[in-house]
């Protein structure tokens, strides 16, 4: 917010854009979403329809927990795959010295962002995996 506001002032008062704001901002959006994903999963804030699972869990706590465990397993699976396959993306960005910006004006390498994105998805996958075990414990009544 502060950076964008600074850019607005720079552009409207001095007639020049700050370099890298829009490209860097775009990359930062992905990075932040990835890094915050695990926390959002943990807080149970991923959007879902509660009309079946909530009453189900209330009446049959074990069945509800097992169903929840299956969902978390799927989450761990897809995010794990994304994290694992992102290793190749990071490598490619490093090898190609991928950057944003314009050479001669201002540039920034992208691989550190890519590495953080990978880390974010990996942590989110682990968070899901941890929930699978918690659900299993509940489901088997231990």
């Amino acid at each position: 917010m502060v950076i964008i506001c600074a850019d607005i002032l720079a552009r409207n008062l001095m007639g020049a854009s700050l370099p890298l704001v829009s490209e860097g901002g775009a990359l930062l959006v992905v990075t932040i979403v990835a890094l915050q994903l695990a926390a959002t999963v943990r807080a149970g804030r991923l959007a879902r329809a509660e009309v079946v699972i909530v009453p189900l869990t209330a009446r049959f706590p074990r069945a509800g927990a097992i169903l929840q465990g299956v969902f978390d397993l799927a989450g761990a699976g897809v995010l794990g795959v994304i994290a694992w396959a992102s290793i190749r993306v990071v490598e490619k960005d490093m090898v190609a010295a991928e950057f944003i910006g314009v050479p001669g004006i201002a540039t920034l390498p992208t691989w550190p962002f890519r590495a953080l994105i990978l880390t974010g998805f990996a942590i989110a996958a682990m968070e899901f995996a941890a929930r699978v075990f918690a659900a299993l414990r509940k489901g088997t009544g231990q």
Binding site: E23, A26, V29, V81, I82, A85, S86, V89
Partner: peptide
């Protein structure tokens, strides 16, 4: 399939507008 999903995860949100 895996590469397509990974590309989506890495690139699809890469837009200034999403901020």
């Amino acid at each position: 399939a895996v590469r397509m999903m990974t590309q989506v995860a890495n690139d699809s949100l890469e837009e200034y507008l999403f901020a």
